[in-house]
């Protein structure tokens, strides 16, 4: 129903392309798919006992959020496919900048995701070392098993 509404509204204003309808479908499918992706990955982090599995799901979780954000910055340009936010000609002219504004996708989410990816890999590295150290202490990466083998109020001294 949503689909019909949007394509109808679009058809009133502009000449209609087949990709118009498909773009709308792609946007909806992909964004909802990534919402599900976020939820499944979060379920994995919270429910699986293995630390490595938790880590894998955490990576999937952050990556899904990042892709979700690229969709926020994407746009549909009738008659052509959008272009990356990069000027190609040197030396360039005001007219080319104007063309870029009409065709390019939003650069800000991309810059933010770049930052988020770097932060993600930084956290990953640290988490991996922590898991390694955990294994060296407990002999397993399964948190249930590790916690069974430990008395609750052991003195750390």
């Amino acid at each position: 129903m949503f689909l019909e509404r949007v394509s109808w509204r679009a058809s009133k204003r502009r000449p209609r392309y087949m990709s118009d309808l498909l773009a709308s479908l792609a946007f909806r499918t992909a964004m909802i798919a990534f919402v599900f992706n976020i939820a499944i990955a979060l379920y994995g982090v919270l429910s699986r006992p293995s630390l490595v599995k938790k880590f894998l799901c955490l990576v999937a979780f952050t990556d899904s959020i990042n892709i979700f954000a690229v969709f926020i910055g994407f746009r549909y340009t009738p008659g052509a496919y959008p272009s990356p936010p990069i000027l190609e000609a040197i030396p360039t002219s005001p007219a080319e900048v104007e063309t870029l504004i009409n065709t390019s996708v939003d650069p800000l989410p991309q810059a933010m995701i770049l930052t988020a990816i770097v932060i993600g890999i930084a956290c990953s590295i640290f988490l991996l070392t922590l898991i390694l150290m955990y294994y060296r202490h407990y002999g397993t990466t399964n948190i249930h098993e590790a916690e069974e083998g430990e008395e609750p109020h052991a003195e750390a001294l």
Binding site: I38, L42, V45, L51, K54, L58, F61, T62, I65, F68, A69, I72, P109, M112, A116, C123, F126, L127, L130, I131, M133, Y134, H137, A146, A154, A156
Partner: peptide
């Protein structure tokens, strides 16, 4: 126990900061 505390803190903290990122977007 310090390693375990740090792991708990790190995993839950990463989920939480990612959710903050999501709401920023």
């Amino acid at each position: 126990r310090a390693i375990r505390a740090a792991l708990r803190y790190a995993i839950s903290g990463m989920i939480v900061t990612s959710l903050y990122l999501l709401s920023t977007f």
